[in-house]
């Protein structure tokens, strides 16, 4: 009796086999090139690999991969190899990805990608750093206020274009010190920062120019009566983004974000960013 579907079985491959690593690196490259929000991720561990033979030719690598968030924003053109992994003390975020990668004539192509991301537990964070603030909800009023103050401070001090907020990508609130730390992405508009009267009338430049900011906001305290804001922004060279899709966690948020209480649509790009592709091509959920 012949086995059913002869020739369609899979072969198990060592997760640390160079061929597995090669497929995983192609998958990670694909993931990062198609991210438009949150942070770039780097390979941490290959969990499982099955290699299926494909008719008439080729092989499909079905892989489960664990990733870790880096400190480079998705819009940052820095190669991920040069990005630092987010440390445990900064409240690390991991990704859990399923990929299908086709190997044909020695070339790897991603056919399917799906990633969920989730922050490390608050308990784990306390173990490594009892005083480190955990990730905060991105729509927390303190976070929103800190981002507004930081962006205003940046626009007030810049001599160039007025920058609009693209997304808040990360936030931590240190209640003891009354400080809120925020990270957010910005985009240049056709308005001059020092001349803006109505930001709503500013339009994004045709050739998109993005930036990434880290800010902190200190609330007024009973002793210290002044608010303080500090912000540092890096403006990236103008860039042509690929047609993008999102990487979502189980709560419907992008990699690097805390679960949000609102039911934001899944994989909806933020304003000013390209929509997901329609039609044929690799599927990125």
């Amino acid at each position: 009796v012949s086995p059913p579907n002869p020739g369609l079985g899979y072969r198990a491959l060592n997760c640390d086999d160079p061929e597995s690593e090669q497929a995983a690196l192609v998958a990670m490259d694909y993931l990062n090139k198609n991210l438009f929000r949150g942070y770039k991720h780097t390979l941490n561990q290959i969990d499982k690999v099955k290699v299926w033979s494909r008719r008439p030719t080729g092989e499909v690598f079905e892989m489960e991969i664990d990733t870790l968030e880096t400190t480079c924003h998705a819009l940052d053109p820095t190669p991920v190899a040069n990005c630092s992994v987010r440390s445990l003390g900064e409240h690390a975020v991991e990704g859990d990805c399923d990929f299908r990668v086709l190997k044909l004539d020695g070339q790897f192509t991603v056919l399917f990608a799906k990633c969920d991301s989730s922050p490390d537990s608050a308990e784990d964070l306390r173990k490594v750093c009892p005083d480190c603030p955990p990730l905060a909800q991105l729509n927390n009023t303190k976070v929103v206020h800190a981002v507004e103050a930081a962006l205003t401070a940046f626009n007030t001090q810049t001599n160039g274009s007025y920058f609009q907020l693209v997304e808040v990508s990360r936030a931590q609130i240190a209640y003891r010190t009354r400080m809120t730390y925020v990270e957010f992405a910005i985009a240049a508009t056709d308005c001059v920062a020092k001349e803006v009267t109505d930001p709503a009338k500013c339009n994004l430049l045709a050739e998109k120019q993005y930036g990434f900011c880290k800010g902190s906001f200190t609330e007024k305290g009973p002793v210290n009566g002044n608010e303080k804001v500090a912000v540092t922004c890096t403006v990236f060279p103008t860039q042509q983004l690929p047609v993008a899709a999102g990487v979502d966690d189980k709560e419907g948020n992008t990699a690097g974000e805390e679960p949000q209480p609102d039911n934001s649509p899944v994989a909806t790009p933020p304003a000013n960013l390209p929509e997901a592709p329609v039609g044929s091509g690799p599927l990125l959920v």
Binding site: A12, L43, N44, I46, D47
Partner: peptide, 27 residues
Amino acid sequence: NVAQPSVAVAPGPVVQPCPGRIRHFKI
């Protein structure tokens, strides 16, 4: 490997094919 029948041969290290190595740290 050649071993005398009376000498017990210690089993070699078991290679776990998966999951693979952790490059940074595990959450």
